[in-house]
Structures are given as C-alpha cells and as structure tokens.
C-alpha cells in the first residue's frame, strides 16, 4: 500500500507536467487536444537521440550523475528535447490546428487532434521501431527505505519527483511574479480583454504551445527514465493526462498539478484492490466520479 502510494506520487509528477500544458491549451484554444500526450513521446525520443549524440561527441558526458542512472549527456539531451518538443508543438499548431481553427468549429479541432495523434504515434513507431527502449541499460538498485511496510525507492525516482516539483515551483513564480505570467493568465481568463490591454494574442498562443511542449518533454523524459520508452507512451498517457486536467478543472494550472498527483496516486492505490490488468480503466472512473460530483473540477470555473 505505502509502496503504491510512493509509486503513485511519482507517476503523478509526470502526469502533472503533462496536464499543465494540456489544461492551458484546452482553456485558451477551447478544444480537447488528444495529441497532447504524443508530445511526451516526442520529448522522450528526442532525448534518446540527443543522449546518444552527446555521449558520442563527448564520451565523458556518458558518466552517470551520482547515484542516478541519468547521465550528463541525458541531462543535456533533456534541454535539447525541451526545445525540439516545444518547436514541434508550435509546428503542429501552424500546420494543422491554426488552419483548422480558422475554418472549422472547436470540435473539428478535437477531431484533427485525433488525426495528429495517430500520425505522430505511428511515425515515431516507423522511425524508432515498435519495441521498447531504455535510456540506460544499467540496472540501478532500489534503496530499501523501510522493510515493514516494504518501501523501495530508486534514486531516479527521488530525482524525478524533486525535479518535477522544482519545475512547477518555477512555473508558479513565473505566473505570479512576472508580467509575462500575468499576461498568460489574462489570456486564459479573457482573451479579448487581454488584447485590448496590449497583449499580443498570437504570441501568447505560440508561447502556450512552446510551454506545453517543453513541460511535456520533461514529463516524457522522466517517464522514460522511470519506465521505458515506446511509441505507445502517448496512447497510454492520453487518458490519465485528461483525467488530471478534468480533476483539476480545465484552465487551472494548480488544478492540473493537483489533478496529476490525484490521478497518479489513485491509479496506483487502486492496484492494491483491483487486479493489475484494470489499471488503464482507473483514469476513466476518476473522470466519471468528477463529472458526477464536481463537473468543473476542483479549481475550474463553469464556462459555457
């Protein structure tokens, strides 16, 4: 049980990072983006490629950082992955979403996102193979934190949780301390009013995509670091990430953070009760429960 809780918090940090970007996009562009989870996949694979590249160019970088399985090369690759994924998100918007937005309704965008997800997922499969891959083949042993109840934690997991929390704190500071953050929140609340107050809407939308893509890349690499990398990352995470945004309330960054942890913990604790095969169903049950009890989520506002 306590092990499930610990694992859940870890998964939750990944889901939170993914959900922050999704909730912003869903709120500002007003469509459920089914391709958002594919950005995690793009990030995970981009880091895989750059990890190999950096390690090849400068072999000392292939050294591990302390007790982690993460290498210096992977740390640098993470930065590259953030840039690549942010750019991909922006590119997809320019190529597909922005054009559909200008001619269709918001639901056409939902549909387009299905198509985009399918293309990204399968192109990834074609490029990198359908099998699973790992950043590091070295086995890192878990540390026994407690024997009774048994609690095993890997150094990577501690790092991922700490780093994810750090990213969230940084985002919090941007949103509450900088005028850029105010502008983002202003656009989320009332795009027209933000425009008349001098905010360039097109630039903010681009920023949201880059931000969402960057956070998704971090989430994807962290997921790959603690699980494994496969072209199905997007397929497996799309529903949990949606569940996190709905639990938190669409448009709320803090709701997305909390929602991510709630969904991660609930899905893992549920494993203590349910047979493990059922874990993909848990996010849906959470969505149903939220829609039943509090349809606008924990922090969301009713919006027509």
């Amino acid at each position: 049980m306590i092990q499930n809780l610990a694992d859940g918090i870890l998964v939750g940090s990944v889901l939170s990072l993914g959900a922050i970007g999704l909730t912003l996009v869903m709120h500002m562009l007003r469509f459920a983006n089914f391709s958002h989870a594919e950005l995690l996949s793009i990030g995970a694979y981009a880091a895989l490629v750059f990890d190999a590249v950096f390690a090849a160019i400068l072999p000392p970088l292939a050294a591990k950082i302390g007790p982690l399985s993460m290498t210096w090369a992977l740390a640098l690759a993470l930065l590259a992955a953030i840039a690549i994924t942010g750019a991909s998100a922006l590119l997809i918007d320019r190529l597909v979403f922005r054009r559909v937005r200008s001619k269709g309704s918001e639901l056409s965008m939902v549909f387009a996102s299905f198509g985009v997800a399918m293309i990204v997922r399968n192109v990834t499969g074609l490029l990198f193979g359908l099998g699973t891959q790992l950043y590091s083949r070295d086995i890192v042993f878990a540390v026994v934190v407690s024997r009774d109840p048994l609690l095993l934690i890997k150094p990577d997991q501690v790092f991922v949780l700490a780093a994810a929390l750090l990213v969230m704190v940084a985002l919090h500071l941007v949103l509450t301390r900088t005028t850029l953050g105010f502008a983002l929140r202003a656009v989320a609340e009332n795009p027209t009013l933000a425009q008349v107050n001098g905010v360039n809407l097109g630039r903010m939308i681009a920023l949201v995509w880059v931000l969402g893509g960057g956070l998704a890349a971090i989430a994807g690499v962290f997921y790959g670091l603690t699980n494994q990398i496969s072209p199905m990352i997007g397929r497996d995470l799309v529903l949990p990430v949606f569940a996190a945004t709905i639990v938190g309330g669409i448009g709320s960054v803090y709701g997305a953070v909390l929602g991510g942890f709630i969904v991660g913990v609930a899905a893992n604790v549920a494993l203590a009760v349910l047979p493990s095969g059922y874990s993909p169903s848990v996010p849906f049950l959470i969505i149903l429960a939220v829609l039943l009890v509090r349809p606008n989520g924990l922090f969301g506002e009713a919006r027509a």
Binding site: R185, A186, E189, N190, G198
Partner: peptide, 21 residues
C-alpha cells in the same frame, strides 16, 4: 469594455502591472 473589464483571477496589483507592461 462594459462587462468583464478586469481580470478577476489576478490581484489588483497584477492587473495594473499587466496594463503597465
């Protein structure tokens, strides 16, 4: 604007800082 002419979720200071950007 007539209605919804301030950002409700921002503080007064943040509203003004945004306008003074």
């Amino acid at each position: 604007p007539q209605m919804d002419n301030i950002f409700r979720t921002l503080t007064i200071r943040q509203n003004l800082d945004l306008a003074l950007r």
